[in-house]
Design a protein around this nucleic acid. Structure first.
Lengths: 194, 194
DNA sequence: CGAAACATACATTCATCATGTATGTAAACG
DNA sequence: CGTTTACATACATGATGAATGTATGTTTCG
């Protein structure tokens, strides 16, 4: 029988999704440097032609994977934030949610370890800032912080990410999580009024 | 005349220093992925044989470069710390010194961007912890912090590194530096007694 | 028919390994 | 004590395989 007559847009969309999905899995498992472009396209049931047609190459595909991942994380944090009316509690809730997300191995590997080296610090930060950082800035302001908020947001975010990395690599994650949350709270205590 | 009769140890030492020095320069300029092993050995006046004899390969040479750099940074911070008798002031002084060091482009590129991706997070952290982190833990304890000190040290260190990166990539570093130091102080205020 | 989507074949770069050569070191021997 | 012999260390060179990127062909849709 003839193949189903999909539109060009559908074909493209499906191929790109495939590449991003497969890339995400493999990059998360073994890291950017240890996954070949051949392996990705093979696992996606495609060839190099498709990859170089839609993206400029392996690096651009990685950027797409990273942006896709970030968008997903932001959406989850925003959803968690929206459910809490108290702004100060919302901040802590959002950080807790983000902590959980950053503990996932794929997030650690792709977003926190490989992305800055592969894409360069500036591009990495540009993508990160466009996504998660904006949410944190809003949350800090809503919680009553007024001075140096953008800078503070970055420092807090890096401490949160560090905490997530600590938890992710600790032999007893539950214990590490408790300790990290105490330490984070102690740090934030100096900022929040009340 | 006969070549100067150097001992094997001297020859090795000289070669390794050369490789590490050249590697550090090139890695700092263009990043690990964009420097070939051939280029390094050529610039060092050697061949691949030397590299593979002394180090396992490009990656191991990078590790050596990174450790060398870290040792240098730690020594400078310790020197700065020793000059200040007041323990609480010493902490701030040490952080300031570290902030300056982390603003150097070679430190940003090698120690903060490439190292975690090339060596893996665990090995990167092991080296970092063995060097600078120990100093920070001691300084925090000496300044009066008692609870969760190792964890807090990591969070603080990540915030400091973040501040350094912010400064390094800001169009007006002086302004960024002032703002980052205010923000850091605000964070630390919650920890330090008095 | 023309353009977009994808496949295939080829060129190039690069890390690594296997092997060869020279230099230094130390022990055996006279 | 000097020399030779045996060995280890330091380095060079050529081959190999893997991986990326490019150029060109083929199919599918509008």
């Amino acid at each position: 029988m003839p193949p189903p007559r999909r539109s060009q847009q559908d074909r493209s969309q499906a191929t790109r999704s495939q590449l991003v999905a497969v890339g995400r899995t493999l990059f998360a498992e073994r890291g950017y440097a240890h996954v070949s472009a051949d392996e990705i396209v093979a696992a996606a049931g495609l060839t190099r032609g498709a990859l170089y047609h839609h993206y400029g190459g392996k690096e651009e595909l990685f950027a797409a994977v990273f942006e896709n991942l970030e968008a997903e994380l932001t959406a989850e944090v925003v959803a968690a934030l929206g459910a809490e009316p108290d702004r100060s509690a919302a901040l802590r809730l959002g950080l807790g949610t983000f902590l959980d997300l950053c503990s996932r191995p794929d997030v650690v590997r792709i977003a926190l370890t490989d992305a800055p080296a592969v894409l360069g610090w500036e591009r990495w930060r540009a993508i990160e800032a466009a996504q998660g950082l904006g949410v944190l800035v809003d949350a800090l302001r809503a919680a009553g912080v007024e001075r140096d908020v953008p800078t503070l947001a970055r420092l807090v975010l890096s401490a949160v990410i560090e905490a997530a990395l600590l938890i992710a690599h600790h032999p007893q994650p539950e214990q590490a999580r408790a300790e990290a949350e105490r330490a984070l709270t102690a740090l934030l205590a100096g900022l929040l009024p009340g």
